[in-house]
Write a protein that binds this DNA or RNA. Structure first.
Lengths: 227, 227
DNA sequence: CGTACCATTGACGACGGTCAAAAAACGTGG
DNA sequence: CCACGTTTTTTGACCGTCGTCAATGGTACG
């Protein structure tokens, strides 16, 4: 299965407008927001590459981000999607283990790692929070593994519930990513994702208002796929 | 697919022989070994359960350990295997996210979490090492995800190479776990694992000396499965 | 309004799961 | 050390889910 992600590399966004935005999802990052700057990234722009030195930590202000790895034969696995408020790119080691790209046009808060580390050195509370962020990431990845052993219907259903939970807006789920992104996240093909969505629609579990706008019609039925 | 792990719960091993053993794989745990005690666990004995308070951190002295989750319908997913020297059960949060069992008779060093936390509070180096352990675990789980999107042959091949790397003894791989454990780790069935192993033997990539003793005959061929 | 790109649908086949049975391996007690 | 019963592993036959290849339909943007 091939998945040539369009490598139309956009500008690397080298501007430092110091926009200090208000973003959802409070965290310790709120208190160190002043240490960083908001940077704009275009659609599909690379934020960092696998194995690059992890000199910065990132937080999504607006838009969405995907992290991924590409296997030798071109198969792509998306590790996670990051939405406004989410922190990503924080590594306990020296290098990024995944690559990161903007899914849509996005504003990203960028913070120097050394600044955080220096603060953690003195404030054990900050050190604990850094650890905690990695711990949450670990949990997320562990849940992801559980997704990957399920059937296609279960994966898609769980995915929709996950997205609904992360962007609470009633039963409406706005998907910032393409079918290909979803497929590469769930370990499926676009065809299977598409077919499964229409299947869920036919069974009245969801309604596909448009390709990227899903309405959850029967959460109970979807939740059954999540066990 | 069902996977009823034999729930013949052995004794919970409630003895505190203070055996301070020499174990491979040096780490910061060496310096805090005196804070804990070596405990014996019988085959299939539970070390801790999912959602239990994570009051202890563990290190394998001898034997092997598996961590796992069981889905609603009985499917079991093994999160990791831990071999002598490996640390497990360290959580950034308050509870264990997986259950842990001894695969074979095992000796496990058990350390109070509060002791580590108190030390981390004062020594930022210790705090950094705790974070680092979680970070390594994160990497391991991320690699695990990559395994789960591969074909059966690739999964089994990669698994053998992983085990060989972790217990270096030439080309001989001694497997402490059953086919069922391997299957639940790789997201396959025992039948597929078994069939794939004989297939690898027929293609002269490995030799199955006995069920739990594999000899790597063609690492190059196996490595091709790992890309 | 036209042209890419993206999503959906269809036909077909392969990989791995399921069910079943045989063969090894293991442990226990005589 | 061997005999027997249990567990684990292997092998076989068959089937279903999902991947592949291909074509059609839809949507966004210049």
């Amino acid at each position: 299965m091939f998945t040539q992600t369009a490598t139309r590399t956009f500008s690397r966004a080298a501007n430092n407008s110091p926009a200090r935005a208000q973003i959802p999802g409070g965290s310790f990052f709120d208190s160190v927001t002043l240490m960083g700057a908001a940077m704009p990234y275009g659609r599909d722009a690379e934020i960092y590459g696998e194995n690059e030195p992890a000199d910065y930590v990132y937080r999504v202000i607006s838009g969405a981000v995907r992290t991924y790895k590409v296997l030798g034969d071109g198969r792509r696995q998306i590790g996670a999607f990051y939405l406004p408020g989410d922190i990503f790119g924080l590594e306990a080691g020296e290098e990024h283990s995944f690559s990161a790209e903007a899914i849509s046009d996005a504003k990203i808060l960028v913070i120097k790692r050394t600044a955080l580390m220096a603060l953690a050195e003195r404030e054990s509370a900050v050190a604990h929070q850094l650890w905690s962020v990695t711990g949450q990431e670990l949990r997320r990845v562990q849940d992801h593994i559980l997704l990957l052993i399920k059937t296609a219907k279960e994966r898609v259903g769980s995915f929709l519930l996950e997205m609904a939970k992360r962007r609470p807006s009633g039963n409406d789920v706005e998907l910032p990513m393409s079918r290909q992104d979803i497929a590469d996240y769930l370990g499926l093909t676009i065809e299977t994702v598409s077919r499964t969505l229409t299947e869920l629609e036919n069974s009245a579990s969801i309604k596909i208002a448009s390709a990227r706008h899903i309405v959850l019609r029967d959460r109970r039925a979807l939740a059954l796929l999540n066990r």
